[in-house]
Design a protein around this nucleic acid. Structure first.
Lengths: 375, 375
DNA sequence: CGTAATCCTGCAAAGGTTTGCAGCGAAATA
DNA sequence: TATTTCGCTGCAAACCTTTGCAGGATTACG
């Protein structure tokens, strides 16, 4: 039923190879012929069979996108941007959800490997060595993690966490807790390191609670621990946990920001809608998705595997493995305030806070693309 | 570099067809041989090339999922469920985002058609006739819309809207507004019809505001109109708009639920996190995704197009086009209250509200699967 | 007018897999 | 023992497209 290249050839009175060239190398065919072929193709509703094309060119024109949890509002903007960017280059995107499970991650890479030209591995929970191993099976771009020797796009959460802590220090907080993220998260380690250093530098006590599930429920569950720890400010691994925590503190009779200040990370849309509006570190999500797709596809003329002509290894197949880090930005809203003056926390003079800041306003922040770190 | 069926055949000393059968028809090959082949395959890291398989069987083992807006929290649970269900049956899912654009919808169906065994068309904005036309090109299952002659899975938003209106009537509201959804939305029409009928039956004034963009911003923008219309209660097309509206009303000095009651539809996770917590109609989202995949794949042995043997039309290719409608459920939280007694709205005695209700509690509601409506 | 260059088109192989058909040996039946 | 049946395997065509190579027609040039 579906029209093939042969039907078009018959209808337009040319050989199938001419039809093929009409689509894949138009400059090689006489404009007049081309017009006729195009007309017939249109008429018959012909569309090239991508499977057949993939078989011979070795390129599927698909990419895989592996995500820890689609339901986490952090990811949809990234997915959306990646999908749109890929489509612009005539690629399709397989989206797969791992439910935060490292085993599922590995299986999915395997399952996708033969069906895609490359995989975007987003916020992986598996080990670095496993990632390196998988990268020998299929071109990989890692998002939200740095892996030596592999192309990565990350967001500067370290800088973001530092800004957040310094903001809290400036408000007089000297007992600060961090709700860390899931085990295996590079982002969580990064945040912990930067936040810890900044807190110590500011002379504050710094407590780490976790690891935790990076969900609202996870945040709610931590409220009791936070209360007992008697901190006056909390930095959460992500907005979802921050929001859950506020919920839980509220239930426990603690007010935000009067009793406890809370800072999130991500700046998901939701964080502008809860009360109080969340102070948070905005991450350039969509930009990360776009960048990752670009990095994966930049060598698209080189990357053909097992094509007819180049049976051996293409001479220039060492892809330049750039590592890009995107800027983050502290967005100050209503969930942070001066530390309560209960004798233990002596509000100091305001500190000078370095780094890019922004007061909450309408519209999303547009974080600029950072520089290339390594090649 | 990647191992082919031929490599495995050579390694295990059998013909390639035996290797092929080891994977696609294990019962036809001697257990001993099978074991050997499997071992060699494992050894070599062989995985069947799906493109080649697709070429000959005519089945890609892919399905497309077309979504109006991934960033709308209504969809992720549906996507997630669909993807997981598909994966269980060894299918992969292409996710595509249309940005609420009917043109993009059409193009995406075309683009995907040759690359998938079927398409899930979710909350389409295009016309029915266009959908029917596209369904001749590729098997289609429509989600959130009823189209005659096509398999559909919908949610009973009519019943949900009715329950919501009756809930409001019971609270004494007699001037009620509906914020309608985007143009072309079947769900929006359905809600409007049911809500209008219920309101009239209860002797209430019923105003429709819209169509609107189904986003938080859209809701904010409507606050002024709502204020001017002097209604005491509002039913919104979805939770996002409801939340935006509450935001906007708040800015305009109107309190929810004291001055105005607001009801949403969808019960997205967010609706439990805003203040006040949103009264809303829960829709069985994940179930819809699962069901749609099942409906698309139920005939997977029949649906092969253009395979070698059956060059003609398979005798039994009229797929049973079931239409499934899933139950919805009113979830009463904090955004609705008794109508203000300002002289115009005379609170009556409580009405008896039919339909399934539920007071807000922890955990998500689990809506049961509805019955098959037509065949 | 003869030769070379240029453009365009056709030919045929290749890519990895599935599958109808045929063949083979062994077991079952007569 | 002769014949049929059965279980397993091999053979080769087919799926649809891309692409290196060669050949034909046309034009440019000497």
């Amino acid at each position: 039923m579906p029209a093939t290249i042969r039907d078009v050839a018959r209808a337009s009175g040319v050989h199938i190879s001419t039809v093929s060239r009409t689509f894949s190398a138009p400059h090689l065919v006489n404009p007049e012929t081309r017009g006729r072929v195009l007309a017939c193709a249109e008429e018959l509703g012909y569309r090239p069979n991508r499977a057949a094309r993939a078989l011979i060119t070795g390129r599927t024109h698909n990419v895989g996108l592996i995500i820890a949890d689609i339901a986490n509002p952090f990811f949809p903007p990234l997915i959306k941007a990646a999908e749109s960017q890929a489509r612009q280059r005539d690629y399709h995107v397989f989206v797969a959800d791992t439910n935060e499970d490292p085993i599922a991650e590995e299986e999915l890479v395997h399952a996708l490997a033969k069906q895609v030209d490359g995989v975007l591995l987003c916020s992986p929970r598996m080990s670095n060595s496993m990632i390196e191993q998988l990268s020998r099976e299929v071109p990989l771009v890692v998002i939200n993690r740095q892996v030596a020797g592999l192309p990565c796009v990350t967001m500067d959460v370290g800088q973001g966490a530092r800004s957040a802590i310094e903001h809290l220090l400036g408000l007089g907080h000297r007992r600060i807790a961090l709700l860390s993220g899931p085990r295996g998260s590079w982002t969580s380690r990064e945040i912990r390191r930067a936040a810890g250093a900044a807190a110590r530098a500011g002379g504050a006590e710094f407590t780490v609670l976790g690891p935790n599930q990076p969900t609202e429920t996870g945040g709610v569950a931590l409220a009791e621990q936070v209360r007992r720890s008697e901190v006056t400010a909390v930095l959460a691994y992500n907005d979802l946990m921050a929001i859950g925590l506020i919920e839980g503190l509220d239930a426990a009779g603690l007010r935000v920001p009067q009793d406890v200040s809370v800072v999130g990370i991500d700046d998901i849309a939701l964080s502008r809608l809860t009360r109080p509006k969340l102070t948070t570190v905005a991450t350039p999500n969509a930009a990360a998705g776009r960048t990752a797709v670009d990095m994966l596809l930049q060598h698209d003329t080189v990357a053909a595997r097992g094509s007819r002509g180049g049976r051996g290894v293409t001479s220039d197949d060492r892809r330049t493995t750039a590592q890009v880090m995107l800027q983050t930005e502290l967005v100050i809203r209503d969930s942070t305030a001066a530390a309560p003056a209960d004798g233990r926390n002596r509000p100091d003079a305001e500190l000078v806070i370095p780094g890019p800041h922004r007061l909450a306003g309408p519209g999303r922040p547009t974080a600029a693309t950072g520089g290339v770190v390594a090649s």
